[in-house]
Design a protein around this nucleic acid. Structure first.
Lengths: 146, 146
DNA sequence: CTTGAAGCTATGGTCGCTAGAGAGATTAGG
DNA sequence: CCTAATCTCTCTAGCGACCATAGCTTCAAG
């Protein structure tokens, strides 16, 4: 049996995150030791690894919840899991496209920077006046910093 | 003079967002009409457009705060603004790289999905066992869904 | 002068955690 | 066996960057 710390280490998930997952119902309530500490077995480790991996792949916790409920019920058709992954793929592709547009814009700003004073800094100027952008694209809808 | 609604429309920013920006000190406190409504002039519009544009380009509000304080001081050298933009560019490039890795992984998962039942669905299986991933890369650090 | 849209403040919710306080449990070394 | 160090426990609060709602007041058009 693993304590929460060992579990976290093995799955690559921080301890408070595990407790958070339990709190929101992604992980079942753990067994407890005599001294009230959580104890986990192989099943919990696998489930947590699943969650961790899916998070790494960009799935939301909501999508992961869906995937887990599918895998808890393994005789259902696979189409649902496939659809979730497909949606996720489309989302990632669109994010890549938006980020690439932003990258081009930023590069253009930087190339034009003459390293003088703020007064004639292209970075500030371009940010202040959208019409100075290279293309007439509207920038992405809120591809905000993380 | 513009009311907050007109300002929001012209700058492409929602009304509660403008009030939020004022609250966190990104916009100065607005003048008020006799009936206590906010009134804005050209300066405020320009400042808000600057913020909006920088947000579109993925700058955090913290970075925008720095850029704004630079632009309030136009005789300084431009290097600081350049550095902020350069950091932003690096961040975006790293996110693109991570997302591209995730995309490849998801595509691989989908190709392998046998469209049978969950029992032999690769989507679930791959998510449950990282070692089944095509390459041995660790996935990105938390490139979470939006 | 009335009505409906737009404004006001204040509070609370979202997502996916992360941090901290203060107390109790467990383990390793002496 | 005792102590010290390291977990672990619960609970609350906070992050960024907003959005939504409630219950008001103000304003502009007809």
């Amino acid at each position: 049996m693993l304590t929460i710390g060992k579990l976290g280490t093995q799955a690559g998930v921080k301890v408070p995150t595990i407790r958070y997952y339990e709190q929101i119902g992604l992980l079942p309530e753990a067994e407890r030791s005599a001294g009230n500490q959580r104890l986990y077995g192989r099943r919990a480790l696998e489930r947590l690894a699943f969650i961790r991996h899916a998070r790494d792949l960009g799935f939301s916790l909501g999508a992961i919840r869906d995937l887990l409920s599918l895998s808890d019920d393994p005789d259902q058709p696979c189409a649902a899991a496939d659809a979730i992954a497909r949606t996720q793929l489309a989302e990632i592709e669109s994010r890549i496209a938006r980020l690439t547009a932003l990258k081009v814009e930023l590069q253009r700003m930087l190339v034009q920077c003459a390293h003088g004073t703020i007064a004639d800094c292209r970075v500030i100027e371009v940010l202040g006046d959208h019409s100075l952008c290279s293309t007439d694209h509207r920038h992405a809808e809120s591809e905000a910093a993380p």
